[in-house]
Amino acid sequence: MLDQADTIAMDVPPEADSGPTRAAGEEKKIKTTGRVTVNKPIITARDVNVRYGDKHAIKDVDIDIAYNEVLAMIGPSGCGKSTFLRCLNRMNDTVDIARVTGRIELEGHDIYDRKTDVVTLRARVGMVFQKPNPFPKSIYENVAYGPRIHGLARNQVELDEIVQTSLRKAGLWEEVNDRLEQPGTGLSGGQQQRLCIARTIAVSPDVILMDEPCSALDPIATAKIEELMDELKENYSIVIVTHSMQQAARVSQRTAYFHLGDLIEVGETERIFTNPRHKLTEDYLTGRFG
């Protein structure tokens, strides 16, 4: 294990060496510690590489995501965990300079295949962002937006029902049912984030990606969201990127540790936190860097 750590330290110094002159083949692949596969995956990612222009942001990542689990991705800033998350519903497409290679399958279908439609993909793999981003519309319209564009409701009654169910699932219904016509931007930060979750649920996706959903929230709002995640995993797979190790420990069943674009270690959350096998994981968890 020590050897490996040294190799990493030598071979993958921060960014400097991962310049464009080095072809992908020359780079030494770091083998991920722990089991990356699961028995019944909804998403499987193999050999995923992401380059932002000259920067090699994700290097040969393999990982599976199971049905009805919460997978936490942790790691120091700039380690590529958010980048990887954005690969899973092709949000990187909106960045001109991003190039994704490798194979990511959603229930056996390659999502980067030419035949895969990105709109359908995103309807199935929803995403919640770091900063709450409700549209400047009413609360109702925010939740109804997805069903409307995708044509999920046949009539107004169905739409009302979807909105109500989604807000209930997001634990927001009690707080806002009397002011659905008011702008979503007028809610508090925690409420806004739950509105965004409700908005995502309204499309009934299979997977929900959460990119540090609580980093802009206070502890009470955070607790509510964490509670919500626990309930949501009954119906959805959730992948959450978080800076807070405690949060990862509280909400997730499995944890993946990223370091400088490499997936270092994956495993049951309890095992990772109590008995990390890789030196880098241990250093991070014990607070030696990060």
């Binding site: 439609d117 359908t120 995708h150 044509g151 009934s204």
Partner: peptide
Amino acid sequence: TAEKVRAGL
């Protein structure tokens, strides 16, 4: 969901 989405694509 996916089927409904595809129908309107």
